[in-house]
Design a protein around this nucleic acid. Structure first.
Lengths: 168, 168
DNA sequence: ATAGATGCAAATATTTTGCCGCCAG
DNA sequence: CTGGCGGCAAAATATTTGCATCTAT
């Protein structure tokens, strides 16, 4: 009963400029939310991301497709997606300052497992995690709509170094 | 400005001014870390806290005992405690902006369960959670030293209101 | 046409840092 | 005594907001 490391395959997008493709765009349109040029670009960045991105990474990628995207718009669009429950926000245990990371809501929640020394982050999903959330829902009689789990430790590769120079 | 009630019974401290009591002080002394007047006060605040506190709350409480405690010192002491692995840091799913909350490492990890509407936070512990961490440790062959789980949803009390005015 | 989005700059909020005098050990 | 610590102010980060303009529907 043990899940193994996750490879998150993005749902098979091409790199079409700014069309009406992609899961996020589709969802927003269905909700009747206005799709501007900038939003399309940002949504596409999020849809195509193979892993969590921070705001600057999102901006950078968006500007490669359309230089007219402003940082403020990235913030506002992320807010929108958070409010609509379409993306998750993480901070990876503040490994790198207080930067926040964002990723599209996968079909299934996953846990972020970070090495506190080298900062490598791996993903993990498990039936146990689903059970845990069910247990919480049952015990508190509430529907769990958001969940975030981040665990840290010293990974295999770092263990030898850690022995010598304990902490960073 | 502050998240609401949790019940966490602190390990039974009295309110003695700034003596050499309390778990945190004891631990730091054993580690040979210098105990200043300000540190003692902050450590005591953390030891006596019945729930997670943000930096301003820590400052406020500390200043009640000793007005000469500066915000910067709170930050530096919290950093120290984080580095020593004596406190946990949470952000409660950013319910209230990007404020961070801190609490002493209990004997056992607990999960923070927040209502996304009223902001009430409750704590939850479960054998399943321990199993989950064991599974991660096994699968990734790493020792899990830090873990944080926060889940959100709409609590029982808020459910009726939520029906009418969906989101904020 | 028009509600709502964007850009820009400026305001906030939060946390970190440099420097110097001071105190715990 | 002395090296680490705390205070203060200023810097660095990160995020939000006001307002005029533009645009998707």
């Amino acid at each position: 009963m043990s899940a193994s490391p996750t490879h998150r395959v993005s749902s098979g997008e091409r790199i079409n400029s700014a069309e009406t493709t992609g899961h996020l765009q589709k969802t927003l349109r269905e909700k009747g939310i206005r799709l501007t040029r900038q939003r399309r670009v940002i949504l596409e960045v999020m849809d195509n991301a193979e892993q969590h991105l921070d705001v600057d990474q999102i901006l950078e990628r968006a500007q490669k497709m359309d230089p007219a995207v402003h940082l403020v718009t990235v913030y506002r669009t992320i807010d929108l997606l958070k409010r609509e429950g379409l993306i998750d926000e993480l901070d990876l245990l503040h490994l790198r300052g207080d930067r926040h990371y964002y990723e599209t809501h996968g079909p299934r929640d996953h846990i972020h497992v970070a090495c506190l020394r080298c900062g490598k982050v791996r993903e993990f999903e498990s039936r146990l995690y689903e059970q845990l959330k069910e247990q919480i829902a049952r015990d508190f009689d509430m529907q769990v709509t958001v969940s975030r789990t981040e665990v840290g430790g010293i990974c295999n590769d770092c263990l030898p170094h850690e022995k010598k120079s304990p902490r960073q």
